[in-house]
Nucleic acid binder design. Structure first.
Lengths: 220, 220
DNA sequence: TTAGTTATTTTGATTAGTCAAAATAAACGT
DNA sequence: ACGTTTATTTTGACTAATCAAAATAACTAA
């Protein structure tokens, strides 16, 4: 059985490779896991021995089919737990990532299935992140962001890709939750500022960096 | 923050001392934790250094006030999680102990409180084991068992003190769940057999050992 | 007492995961 | 092509938790 350390390595590899194809660098992984690069090298070699990853020395790592399977299962647990914490326990949107970080390693597949049923088989978590299916399918649709979308087009927010409590609180405070309608009224690359407007509300200015973390879809 | 290993040591000390007063032997602890005695000695010395226990060499250990506080919190998590798994997720009575074993170390105090509210502040878990209060009060009432109660007196089952899946399945199969009414019709110390009868049902024969794990209360 | 049994403690080794810092390889700019 | 910067790997050391087996202390029965 994979330890929670192993589960974390695999989960972050999945998240960093946007679907699991490209090589992930040791540095990026070290950064994501908050350990020094040397530790990652050591661990990745062990993971290669156990068949979870393929290690290309001095280039990077990639998940094997088995590693990807484990990673998707952990991610499914993480996101379903987030749904549970927000929808059933009514916890704060911004706090649940930290909680789920612990719980994702403690819940069994049995509990996972029942939780999924209880929640009505949701497709995304409260931040709009897609939940991998039981069979390991993960929606990999590429969305526009408030930093890349067409100006003045009516949009619907679908997902927030930064799970830090500060950013989520900012998003919540400004009513930019998934499901809300907005449009970008102005974008200035030089100043790095984006102005967005909700259907009923005053204009809201945010940085390109922040805007890039808010994924949107054209309203159909 | 206490590791889950530390939490397990403290929890089992609490369970083995029936309330936290008497000394617990190294052997009993080793048995309960499924480690060799030498490991327990080492660990207990560390726990004494951190102020969680008082170690009397060659005699045993006892929880300090702080150790007891931590242990009660873990036990509260364990039992509330069991309630959740059975009452909300409708999981099998006999399987939830194993699940809760993992979850008790992963849920935060915040989640614990909300779970408690969601479940309506239950006083016992599905096996009848008392749930420590948030303030650390644990019902320590001493109950009779089917092995010690008065013969022919009408009783109500309040608690099952063996959490092994096999025993719980046996109990469930024979309708001896907490809340049920029974009486002992015969007890033979020589053969070591107890005969019990539910209000509507045929007589049921069980060993003294098994009968001693079923706690009862006179029906008032 | 004295010998023998039993519980506990000590000692030395092992595994998983980590860090600091030195060594190495690759990439980059001129 | 050459030195410099940057990423990665290696090396040696450390902590938490464990086991096997030897040493010690305590209890027990004659």
């Amino acid at each position: 059985m994979a330890t929670s350390t192993v589960e974390n390595y695999l989960k972050h590899m999945l998240l960093l490779s946007e679907g699991g194809e490209e090589l992930v660098s040791m540095g990026a992984l070290a950064e994501a896991l908050a350990v020094v690069p040397g530790t990652v090298t050591t661990m990745v070699k062990a993971l290669a021995d156990s068949g979870h990853v393929e290690h290309r020395p001095r280039q990077g790592v990639r998940l094997t089919a088995e590693g990807r399977r484990v990673a998707l299962n952990v991610l499914r647990k993480h996101r379903l737990v987030e749904c549970f914490l927000v929808n059933v326990l009514k916890m704060d949107w911004a706090a649940v990532d930290t909680e789920a970080e612990q719980l994702e390693h403690a819940i069994s597949d049995e509990v996972l299935d029942r939780l999924d049923a209880l929640l009505g088989h949701p497709e995304t978590d409260p931040h709009g992140d897609p939940i991998p299916s039981r069979q390991g399918k993960l929606d990999s649709q590429v969305y526009a962001t408030l930093a890349t979308c067409v100006v003045e087009k009516p949009l619907r927010i679908v997902r927030i890709t930064d799970q830090s409590a500060e950013f989520l609180q900012f998003v919540e405070h400004n009513g930019l939750l998934p499901g809300e309608s907005v449009r970008v009224t102005e974008r200035n690359l030089a100043s790095g500022l984006v102005t967005a407007k909700k259907t009923a509300g005053r204009p809201l200015v945010l940085s390109l960096a922040a805007a890039g973390k808010i994924l949107v879809q054209p309203t159909r």
